[in-house]
Design a protein around this nucleic acid. Structure first.
Lengths: 66, 66
DNA sequence: TCTATATGTAAAGTTTGTTTTACATTTGAC
DNA sequence: GTCAAATGTAAAACAAACTTTACATATAGA
């Protein structure tokens, strides 16, 4: 799975730490997500999508290998 | 987080085992999801949403406590 | 150049997702 | 009422999410 987090953060002018705080996870978790080090839970995806006012599918994308 | 899985399965006439097979998890995982025993990964949410042709937000819902 | 802020990364630890096996209970068709 | 299919559940084991601490690198502004 890939994601758009970096772009969305840029649009909303948020640092990784800002975003982490907003959705209640550690900054390292946001960093790892952006670097595709792991797949977040659906709760996190929903929270992030809500914060950015976009559907989950506009931020997280399935890949062939998923 | 809550979800609509049971309803969506009914609409599409799928058993828990059917759904599990379609998205590549165990039947127990589907059962546990439906009973809100755990929060699935975003990859699973995306696969389920894709299968049912609906946005993730139409199937999985944040709650106050999330 | 010095400093502050943002990002990358790593290791260890805790919690939670997910599988496997196995069995009990429910439900519907016959 | 029987039988098969579907669902509920549980325990053990493993994999992955997520946290904390800590440090290194990059970047931009004074």
């Amino acid at each position: 799975m890939k994601n758009n987090l970096k772009v969305e953060r840029a649009i909303h002018n948020l640092t990784q730490a800002d975003l982490a705080e907003r959705i209640g996870v550690s900054r390292q978790s946001i960093n790892a997500m952006e670097k595709n080090k792991y797949v977040p839970s659906t709760v996190l995806a929903l929270k992030i999508a809500k914060l950015f006012n976009k559907p989950v599918e506009d931020i997280f994308f399935l890949e062939e290998t998923d």
